[in-house]
Simulated scan of single mutants.
Amino acid sequence: MTQTATSTTQGCIFCAIVARQAEASVVYEDETVVAFMSLHPVTPGHLLVVPRKHAVGLEDLDAPTSTHVWSVAHEMARAIRRSAMPCEGINVFLCDGEAAFQTVFHFHLHVIPRYPGDGWTIIPDEVERERSLLDNDAQVIKDALV
């Protein structure tokens, strides 16, 4: 069972980190977000940007918080590139929902430095989709814009 944005945040490790009730190696914090090192990094320097206010996924974030989280992730990526961790690329990765590999149900962005031969891959089996199907998908999404 997953949490909703209105349910208790008791037991949420990211809420505990934000409240300083759990340990974390904090890189940056302000009134809206906390950025800290991932306890299970896929590469050295892998960090997470987490809103202070509990939100399960994208749908639960208000626009100003969402904008700020992405902006801080951008700044963290820039800082990693300028740091003594000489990475050659950056992935900003979002897992929104269990089907998208989300395991902690408090919204967070992964900022992952990439190094040659680091062993972490995201290689999908790509299949080209017919234009008529793409057009239909586009219309379904347009119809849902509010």
Rank of each mutant, 00 (worst) to 15 (best):
G57W: 00
E130N: 11
C15F: 01
V33E: 00
I141C: 08
F36I: 00
F36P: 11
I80K: 00
V127L: 14
H108I: 02
V56M: 05
D125E: 12
G119E: 10
L47G: 10
C15K: 03
W70D: 06
V69I: 02
G119A: 04
V140T: 14
L133R: 09
V56S: 03
I122T: 05
F93H: 09
P44R: 15
N136E: 13
A100K: 06
I123T: 15
V27I: 15
T67K: 12
L39I: 10
D62E: 13
E128W: 08
P86E: 14
L94Q: 12
S83W: 01
V146M: 09
V69K: 05
P113F: 08
E59W: 04
V104T: 14
L58R: 08
W120A: 13
A63R: 13
D135K: 13
W120K: 07
E59S: 13
E31Y: 05
L61W: 04
L47H: 05
H106L: 01
T121A: 13
A79H: 03
A35M: 02
V111E: 06
L58K: 07
A99C: 14
L134H: 06
D30Q: 07
T9N: 15
D125V: 03
V56G: 01
V18I: 10
C12S: 03
Y115S: 04
H46M: 09
R131Y: 01
V146K: 14
E31C: 04
D60K: 00
D96K: 05
V140I: 14
E75R: 15
R81Q: 12
I90S: 02
K142L: 15
T8Q: 07
E59L: 15
E128C: 11
I141P: 06
I122E: 12
E130W: 01
V92S: 06
Q102L: 06
W120F: 12
H110E: 10
Q3E: 07
M76D: 03
Q102A: 08
V72R: 04
Q102T: 00
A5C: 07
F36Y: 07
A100W: 12
Q10I: 04
T43P: 14
E23Q: 13
Y115K: 00
H40F: 06
S66R: 14
R114M: 12
A55I: 00
A79Q: 06
I123G: 09
Q21Y: 00
C15L: 03
E88V: 02
P44Y: 11
I17L: 06
L109Q: 02
R78V: 03
K142C: 09
A79D: 04
L94I: 10
V26L: 06
H46P: 12
E29C: 07
V69F: 00
W70F: 15
A63I: 08
V140D: 15
H54V: 00
I80L: 15
C15Y: 03
K142T: 04
T32I: 10
A100M: 13
V146E: 13
C15V: 00
H74Y: 05
A55W: 09
L39E: 11
N91H: 11
F107H: 11
Q10N: 11
V56F: 01
L133V: 08
A63W: 03
V42S: 10
V50P: 07
E31K: 11
E98S: 15
I112S: 11
D96F: 08
G57C: 06
V34T: 08
Q139F: 04
D135E: 15
R81K: 14
V56K: 04
T6E: 13
F14N: 07
E23N: 15
G11V: 01
R82Y: 11
L145M: 10
R78I: 03
